[in-house]
Each structure stands twice: as structure tokens, then as C-alpha cells.
């Protein structure tokens, strides 16, 4: 059986066909083969969350999936979420509150936070600070102490909730 495989997938809306080693993780694939270096490698054992990205609409650890598993999948990285404008308000809130210092955890943190905000949207709810803290507890930040990140996510949750209410009235 071959150690290399051909895969075809959609990455940030673009069709991608590549030959990859079976052993290559998804995060190494997007970084090395596609040049999408916004997804970061922090621990390669699923703890730090720096490689958080979306596969078929849900967040995953990019180090705990193989690229070959994503044959046929839809993969979204921070570059895609940025270019589409989907997380523009969240990015602005992070910048406004200095909710990042070195920025290495930030793409994963934003991607994780966006999933919580989407769930809140679906449930028409605003997550509490405690819920925000719990949801981002799979994403390690050594710089900020998390307070500013919680502030930023909370503010966007409130703004999006207001926008929802406005759209409904």
C-alpha cells in the first residue's frame, strides 16, 4: 500500500489537489504544501489549540487529523475566515483590546471563539464570561492571561446579539 496519496479538497473556497504523505497532519499540510501559515503548530499532541481550524464546518485540532482524512472535505483556516470577513468584528475587538500579544495563539483562538459565537447565534443567546472562558480553555495563551480575550469575545457576543435584535425588530 502506498505511503503517499492523492487528495482533493476545498480549502478556503479554493479547489486543491495534492499528493501527500499519508503521515502528514492537516496542519503541516496547510502550512507546508499550501503556504497557509496562519495555522500554527504549538504542541502536536492536541493540547495547545494553536492549530485550530475548521473542517466541514466544525473546529478541529489540525495536529490530530491527517491531511489524507480531508479528501473531499471543506477546510477553512484563519486566512479564509479573514478574507471572507466572517470574523472581522472579532478581529477588530481583539485588536481594540490588545487581546493578543505575540499573536501565535490568535488564529486558533479566533477560530474557536467564532464557533462559540455561532452557537450563541443559533440559540439566540449571549455567552457569559464563564462560558467564554470554558469554551476557549482548549486554546493556550501564554501572553495575555486571558482577561482581554474574554473581554473581546464578550463584546462581540453582545454586539452581534444587538444586531440580531435589531434585525428582528
Amino acid at each position: 500500500m502506498s505511503m503517499d496519496m492523492d487528495i482533493t479538497l476545498t480549502v478556503n473556497g479554493e479547489a486543491v489537489s495534492e499528493r501527500v504523505e499519508a503521515r502528514k497532519t492537516l496542519v503541516d499540510f496547510v502550512r507546508e504544501d499550501l503556504g497557509l501559515t496562519g495555522s500554527h503548530v504549538g504542541c502536536e499532541h492536541g493540547v495547545c489549540g494553536a492549530c485550530t481550524m475548521r473542517v466541514d464546518g466544525v473546529i478541529v485540532r489540525g495536529c490530530l487529523m491527517l491531511a489524507v482524512q480531508c479528501d473531499g472535505a471543506v477546510v477553512e483556516t484563519i486566512e479564509g475566515l479573514s478574507d471572507s470577513g466572517e470574523v472581522a468584528d472579532l478581529q477588530a475587538a481583539f485588536e481594540q483590546r490588545n487581546a493578543l500579544q505575540c499573536g501565535y495563539c490568535t488564529p486558533g483562538m479566533l477560530t474557536a471563539a467564532q464557533e462559540l459565537l455561532q452557537q450563541a447565534q443559533a440559540n439566540n443567546a449571549v455567552p457569559s464570561r464563564e462560558e467564554i472562558r470554558e469554551h476557549i480553555s482548549g486554546n493556550y495563551c501564554r501572553c495575555t492571561g486571558y482577561h482581554a480575550i474574554v473581554d473581546a469575545v464578550e463584546s462581540v457576543a453582545q454586539e452581534r446579539s444587538k444586531a440580531r435584535a435589531g434585525a428582528q425588530s
Binding site: G46, G49, T52, V58, I59, V60, R61, L64, M65, A112, E115, L116, H135, S137, G138, N139
Partner: peptide
């Protein structure tokens, strides 16, 4: 059990 990204997979 774990965190959101782990529970997704």
C-alpha cells in the same frame, strides 16, 4: 471530556 475541538472529532 476534553474541549470543544476534541469533542467535535
Amino acid at each position: 471530556i476534553g474541549h470543544a475541538a476534541i469533542r467535535n472529532r
